[in-house]
């Protein structure tokens, strides 16, 4: 304990704090870029998976296989696979790129199920009505299905991304300069492990908690029906 207190002033030096903030920024960037791209790819995957017709059967099976396979492989293993694969084909790729690709692969598989659940929550009859009016599949998805699926998709997708902030710590294993890697380094520099890992634990919490509150707020907002919001607006006016 005395050692920790003695180390504290040096640990809280400006240099260290800047490095910690940079590491926190890296953690956030990994999550935002990885989950953001993964979320977009999840839409594409689900759209392809819903391709109608016999000719699209291999495509549908491929999409299902992707989701089932990557949901069953530990994220750390995906990360190593991506690392060795990318290094084999493009040795100058940055660690950040490698980490983001790994996160994308994982996030696509996980959010695809969220997206699919959302799209399937829209009554089939509305899609048939669109078909009967010659409205194509892409248009129907964009103009009719997505706007209604959004409230079902967004809250769990945000919850997934927020919880993934914690999982990014695994990419410290391949040497990406994010929070957990930074704590390891501080520990190696002689700082107490309690101090180093305690500090990043606090940072993880400080990043995640407001974002999860934001997610809950959005969930409530989206759950309120349009009619209710409109009624409230009219009462205020």
């Amino acid at each position: 304990m005395d050692r920790i207190l003695a180390q504290l002033p040096r640990f809280l030096s400006a240099d260290n704090l800047v490095l910690l903030a940079e590491a926190a920024g890296m953690t956030l960037a990994l999550t935002a870029v990885g989950c953001g791209i993964g979320f977009g790819l999840a839409f594409l995957l689900v759209y392809l998976r819903q391709s109608p017709g016999r000719w699209a059967l291999p495509l549908r099976l491929l999409c299902i296989a992707y989701v089932e396979v990557f949901r069953r492989i530990p994220f750390l293993v995906v990360t190593y696979l991506v690392l060795f694969f990318i290094q084999a084909v493009a040795s100058n790729a940055s660690l950040f790129t490698i980490a983001v690709v790994a996160i994308c692969i994982h996030a696509t598989a996980y959010t695809a199920e969220i997206v699919r659940g959302g799209l399937e929550s829209v009554p089939r009859q509305q899609i048939e009505a669109a078909q009967a009016m010659n409205i194509g599949r892409l248009r129907t998805t964009v103009l009719i299905v997505l706007p209604q699926a959004w409230p079902v998709i967004v809250p769990p997708a945000i919850a997934y991304a927020v919880s993934f902030i914690k999982d990014t710590s695994l990419v410290s294993q391949i040497g990406v300069f994010e929070l957990t890697f930074r704590a390891k380094e501080l520990n190696n520099q002689g700082f107490s492990g309690i101090l180093a890992y305690g500090a990043i634990a606090l940072v993880y919490f400080v990043i995640s908690f407001p974002l999860s509150l934001l997610g809950q707020h959005l969930e409530k907002r989206l759950a309120t029906s349009r009619a209710e919001r409109r009624a409230r607006r009219l009462r205020r006016a």
């Binding site: 009859q125 509305q126 009505a129 669109a130 103009l143 706007p147 209604q148």
Partner: peptide, 8 residues
């Protein structure tokens, strides 16, 4: 069942 587009 009418099948109106609920978002429009």
């Amino acid at each position: 069942q009418y099948n109106l587009f609920q978002n429009m």
